[in-house]
Design a binder for these strands. Structure first.
Lengths: 374, 374
DNA sequence: CCCGCATCTGACAACGTTGTCCAGGCTCTA
DNA sequence: TAGAGCCTGGACAACGTTGTCAGATGCGGG
């Protein structure tokens, strides 16, 4: 997957990391880069060209392009004509090099295709836009190494700031960047081993409430299907589940929890085992949207009615029979809050790293209110 | 309005923002950034610094960083130590300026939060990654002006290529860019007034099949709820609806079609009118995923059973009662195909613009097979 | 008529990197 | 031991832009 030969610009940066292959990459990429064209940028006109055509100095063009004062309307007109005639477009790379700010921020998340991250990403984008910045984003696919790769590639491009939904649990590699002034906010999960701004959902509280809700409806044998406890959110939700059970004086049987299983087939099997073991569960608490969807499918095939509460809301959850009770977190607010803090870091308003925890909301729709059916 | 000069106004918009922060930041950030230093990039070390510390020449550092041959292991070691000690990270802006390629591509779509675009975006990202490029993306919010703004901002950053899901219908503003060698592929909707690569779904065929399917199940009064015909996909789907009706010799009543209404409340009203007019429909064909979801809600409140086929697949569609029959298009394949063509343009394999149409797939789940209930 | 001032314009350096080219030192051979 | 050839390392220019500063121009007042 991480085919070194095919990835050249970014991977060069990784050379310290994988020294073995590093050397071999370079010659092979020649074929690609060099076949492209003989002239850089396909020979785009520069300010110099515009200046020559308009018969003015370089700096005058710059002034026109940037709307600076001190240019006669007549001169400005000539310059604009030249710009249009040549199809000139300012080269922001050079501008960045000169000015030191890129007006772009990076967003690293797990998977852009996940319906949880779409709205989050969009919210970040909107804030970026309001601050005149573009958004570069990348998916880590829950792989710490890939996360680091992406983050460092973004830093090499000198993004002004980073919004990171971390996959790994050690972010000391970011220390030089933080020192260098790259604004950074972690979202959804905290940073590992460094001091940084964090915006989280109240995963523990949400999970505890969800399970307490099931207990309040008479359940005692409650299953939990969650992700790897290595992931902070998964660990917190597990903790919430355990806390609620303990609060109610219920001992949790080993067979009731499934951790770290995520692909649909295996989630399916895990759920079925809970439902058919010697002490079968009467309710299930699912740890994220994907798991919830799979478990809904499993339950739909069962005749026995099993209660369900899921973490994360799901589209159409209200239209299923029964409606799916969930603990909803607000992805858009999560993203917006993080991005706003990022820009406040950048304009110097925000000084000390904080940990912000947003509340979750239990939405009852039926599936979580079913009575136990033994 | 959309002349060449406006692009600079776009950047000018950014500049005031930039300047406001840029200028004022410096003093204010003292506490955070200046704890470390006072200059640009928070005084990041450059190759020069590394060279000085390692006691070698500038170019030698460059060689080490880029894995070029011609450096003794011992020298290389010294350089790497200096790099680590200083926390040096190559400045890709300068690199880009020098080399002329950014190894990044831009993706402009309607709304990242839409479940249709998430997978598409992710697919583009994966292809970009395989080719060593990063992805910058922006949402046009279905606004042609904003689309142009975004596209031109991306061009100013000298992205190597663009994947565009257009909102507007006139893309002549892209001509200078195309000439300058910016690889461009349009997705989901064709480019307007320029000759460019396009990857589309078979919207017309899919819609016609969907409506024919309803007709085959005995329906004659079939409603269509779609988006503004200004949007190519919406127009094509409308055309498909009309073609199927005409093929069956059915005259379409005005009251049966709703176009350009998208927000849930008004879609709801539109659907209810179709269902309660003098000649109420017995089936509805919905033109995109958001509309489908809303109409499902409306139908769920009705006692009379109304058939439904939706364009675009929906998560959990199989678990509803009845399951939702849809015409599915494969967003990921759409994105992947487009991105692959983009990189083939870049490496010179692909020379002439083409129009590629991907088939859609009718997935029957129950709602489209209901008999008419008058 | 000239000076001072304000307004407009342009030459030049700098941003951090990479490509070119040359210098110096080494090894190997005659 | 001298000369050829190779290998390593460094000086320098260039990429396209912006900030600085000084020069040119025009105008009004003394």
């Amino acid at each position: 997957m991480l085919d070194a030969t095919s990835s050249y610009e970014i991977m060069d940066q990784r050379i310290p990391v994988d020294d073995r292959t590093g050397r071999r990459i370079v010659p092979e990429t020649h074929s690609r880069a060099d076949r492209l064209s003989t002239t850089r940028y396909g020979n785009r006109p520069t300010m110099k060209d515009v200046a020559a055509r308009a018969g003015v100095g370089l700096k005058t063009v710059s002034r026109v392009v940037n709307g600076e004062a001190g240019v006669t309307p007549e001169t400005e007109h000539r310059v604009r004509e030249a710009i249009e005639a040549l199809g000139f477009r300012r080269n922001d790379s050079a501008r960045v090099l000169r000015k030191g700010r890129t007006a772009s921020i990076g967003l690293v998340l797990e998977d852009l295709a996940d319906p949880f991250y779409g709205p989050l990403s969009r919210a970040v984008e909107e804030v970026a836009r309001a601050n005149g910045a573009l958004l570069i984003n990348g998916s880590s696919a829950e792989d710490p190494e890939r996360e680091q790769e992406l983050v460092l590639a973004l830093c090499a491009r000198r993004v002004d700031g980073l919004v990171v939904i971390p996959a790994g649990d050690d972010h000391r590699y970011l220390e030089p960047e933080l020192k260098a002034g790259v604004a950074t906010v972690f979202v959804d999960r905290p940073a590992g081993r460094i001091d940084a701004d964090v915006v989280l959902s109240d995963n523990f509280g949400g999970a505890r409430d969800a399970v307490a809700h099931l207990i309040a409806h008479g359940h005692r044998r409650i299953g939990f299907v969650g992700d790897m406890p290595r992931i902070h959110t998964a660990a917190e939700r597990l903790r919430g589940y355990r806390a609620a059970m303990e609060d109610a004086g219920i001992e949790v049987a080993d067979a009731w929890t499934s951790l770290g299983v995520t692909d649909p087939q295996r989630v399916r099997r895990a759920a079925e085992e809970m439902l058919s073991g010697p002490s079968p569960v009467t309710a299930i608490f699912t740890g994220n949207n994907r798991v919830t969807v799979t478990v809904i499918r499993v339950l739909a095939e069962h005749t026995r009615r099993v209660a369900l509460v899921g973490f994360d809301d799901i589209e159409l959850a209200d239209l299923l029979q029964p409606g799916v009770t969930v603990v909803a977190q607000d992805a858009a607010t999560l993203g917006r809050t993080a991005a706003e803090r990022l820009f406040r870091q950048l304009d110097g308003t925000l000084l000390t790293p904080e940990r912000i925890e947003l509340p979750t909301r239990l939405i009852t729709r039926g599936s979580g209110e079913l009575a136990p059916a033994d």
